[in-house]
């Protein structure tokens, strides 16, 4: 925790690394100044794009002592404003799950290769990024802790499956490779409280380590202070839980 007698400094910049299929993609990386070693966090941006909100969130983690990296999951989909690129990707059905997993796994390997990181790596994402976080924590062994913020469509009906999202993520629960924190709003319609309960039952069935919190008075996206979904009290409490969880598992 920051105290006023501490020196503060961080470096934040665009970097490149090898993502899925060895493709070189952009990422936004923020890190505290100093030799470290620092734990790391991979941030998985949501369907609204690789934009200011997630870049701020990346710097927030650096402020809290983490090397934070947020890959541009839409790197291959052209350049433009984050909104314009995201709108195009969304119209095309979102990024393919396999590609996202490769990009996220590559980001973990990249930060582990840096001389000032500790080797402990967490992953966090919200909305579609929460879904991808759960997938990454199940389909790779790259992470030491995962935070799913209201990931929708973790429980998918057969008719929802597409070429880009061919498997309902809950099917991978048995492969979850690290502790999981999940934050949800009880007024959310995907995931609904019933879907959260379904996921929790699967985690219990497979003996996985998890911690779920569902907030009254909140729906989807209650951290998004720039949108109507923001819920101050729940967001403040949720952030405290995120940092406590990462401190517990990444220190």
């Amino acid at each position: 925790m920051f105290t006023t007698d501490q020196y503060q400094g961080m470096l934040a910049e665009t970097v490149t690394y090898a993502g899925a299929n060895g493709d070189v993609i952009d990422a936004y990386l923020a890190r505290p100044l100093g030799p470290g070693p620092f734990p790391s966090v991979v941030l998985i941006h949501n369907v609204l794009g690789w934009g200011e909100y997630y870049h701020e969130m990346t710097r927030k983690f650096a402020h809290h002592g983490y090397v934070a990296i947020c890959p541009n999951l839409f790197d291959r989909d052209g350049d433009g404003t984050p909104e314009d690129v995201a709108a195009q990707v969304r119209a095309d059905g979102g990024p393919p799950d396999d590609r996202v997993i490769g990009d996220v796994e590559g980001a973990a390997a990249f930060v582990r290769s840096l001389p000032y990181t500790s080797g402990k790596v967490g992953v966090i994402g919200s909305c579609s990024g929460g879904r991808h976080t759960f997938l990454a924590a199940c389909r790779t062994s790259a992470f030491d802790a995962a935070v799913d913020l209201w990931g929708g469509r973790v429980v998918m009906a057969p008719e929802e499956l597409t070429e880009r999202t061919p498997v309902s993520p809950i099917e991978y629960t048995k492969d979850l490779s690290c502790p999981l924190l999940g934050l949800f709003g009880v007024e959310d319609r995907n995931p609904t409280p019933e879907m959260v309960a379904q996921l929790e039952a699967a985690l219990k069935e497979h003996g996985k380590q998890y911690e779920f919190h569902s907030y009254e008075g909140a729906g989807h996206g209650f951290f998004y202070y720039h949108m109507g979904m923001y819920r101050q009290e729940q967001a403040v409490d949720g952030w405290e839980k995120v940092f406590a969880f990462f401190e517990q598992h990444l220190s």
Binding site: R90, A91, G93, G94, G152, N190
Partner: peptide, 9 residues
């Protein structure tokens, strides 16, 4: 929730 509801015309 992300509905992913989109139609192209």
């Amino acid at each position: 929730m992300c509905t992913m509801i989109v139609e192209k015309v």
